[in-house]
């Protein structure tokens, strides 16, 4: 798994999920039941989005209160690692897509010339190509949906269009997950 890879002595390890309720995988059950249900729905949705977009995976970053974009999840471990790398390096296509309000396609993180990308490439390895699409809700940018591949790749205009459509569906899903997490009762499995 990507989290187990050696990413080099000169690169500080990117923080991953902390042990306890914040962690993924089998520890998700330690969170509240509604958050666990929301996590399950989001996870399955990201898997579907990866398949539809013909990428190796799909991952999500969402805006928090004041801390900027936070890594929320990926369809694979590599996807979550990519998001943590972007969160802690404070650079990457997810940030650019949110600030620009439009899709950002990076064919190879390693050869991208923008400042900070070389470091990001090492932190996010083995991910190489990333397509980041802003997630809009009623005009607000609430986060970034990322599609990724583990080899250099030229994203097509069709894939960018697919990504934009999927970001719209992600927005529709997220506002319902937010409403669900506020609703009373045990939730529907």
């Amino acid at each position: 798994m990507a989290n187990d890879r050696d990413i080099g002595d000169n690169v500080p390890p990117v923080p991953g999920p902390r042990p306890g309720p914040s962690s993924d995988g089998g520890l998700a059950a330690a969170a509240g039941p509604r958050v666990s249900l929301a996590a399950g729905r989001l996870s399955r949705a990201l898997h579907s989005m990866a398949l539809i977009s013909q990428a190796d995976g799909a991952a999500l970053m969402l805006a928090g209160e004041a801390s900027g974009l936070r890594a929320v999840g990926g369809s694979t471990a590599e996807g979550l690692k990519l998001q943590y790398a972007q969160q802690f390096e404070r650079v990457g296509p997810a940030h650019d897509s949110v600030s620009d309000g439009q899709p950002v396609a990076v064919n190879d993180l390693e050869s991208h010339e923008e400042a900070g990308y070389a470091r990001l490439a090492r932190s996010a390895a083995p991910v190489r190509a990333v397509l980041s699409v802003p997630v809009h809700v009623e005009g607000d940018v609430i986060g970034s949906l990322n599609f990724y591949r583990c080899t250099p790749y030229t994203w097509t205009s069709r894939q960018i269009a697919v990504g934009e459509h999927l970001a719209g569906t992600a927005a529709d899903l997220l506002i319902r997950l937010a409403a669900d997490s506020a609703a009373g009762g045990p939730g529907r499995p």
């Binding site: 309720p21 962690s23 995988g25 998700a28 509240g32 929301a38 999840g73 694979t76």
Partner: peptide, 15 residues
């Protein structure tokens, strides 16, 4: 799953 549930919860609360 590869979801950071703490980050998800905080983001949904914000949303």
């Amino acid at each position: 799953m590869h979801i950071d549930t703490e980050a998800l919860d905080a983001s949904l609360q914000h949303l």
